[in-house]
Amino acid sequence: MISFTVNGRPAAVAVPDAKPLLDTLRDDLGLTGAKECCGKGECGSCTVLMDGEPVCACLVFTAQARGVEIITVEGIGGGPEQLDPIQAAFVAEGAAQCGYCTPGFIVAARALLDKNPHPTAAEIRRGLAGNLCRCTGYQKILQAVAKAAEGRAD
């Protein structure tokens, strides 16, 4: 058994030690917010917070998560009715199109703003450079994160 907490709740899974954490979250814990796109750390669509740090869950051995605290997109905000400010800004700006990359961006953006609540435009770009999006061209994503950082509620 490998035990850790996910979104504040304890979890214990009986999976191979080297199973990618992403697969464990998706297959064994039913948390399908994090997605696989490249499986090799290039796209960030699998981003989750591990002890507060954004990591590619596709590159983490599940055994490495023993005793850590994981936050997935499902643990950010209070669901569709109670969005986190970043999520609300994504909706308002139109920063999610197909949406497959979106959970990874939300988690990475949350990590960025938790560390640096008032990032410059360049810091936002750099902070999200590990996340690929094929639909939006990124501009609305960058605007949404800037807006969330400024605390604009519109």
Binding site: R26, D27, G30, L31, T32, G33, A34, K35, T72, V73, E74, I76, G77, G79, P80, E81, L83, Q87, F90, V91, A92, G94, A96, G99, Y100, T102, P103, I106
Partner: peptide, 23 residues
């Protein structure tokens, strides 16, 4: 009008189930 996407809240919270998310 700039009507916000109807599927926006589901997508930004990771609730949307794509076909490859089904189990």
């Amino acid at each position: 009008r700039r009507v916000p996407r109807l599927d926006g809240p589901e997508k930004v919270t990771g609730r949307t189930k794509y076909m490859t998310d089904l189990h």
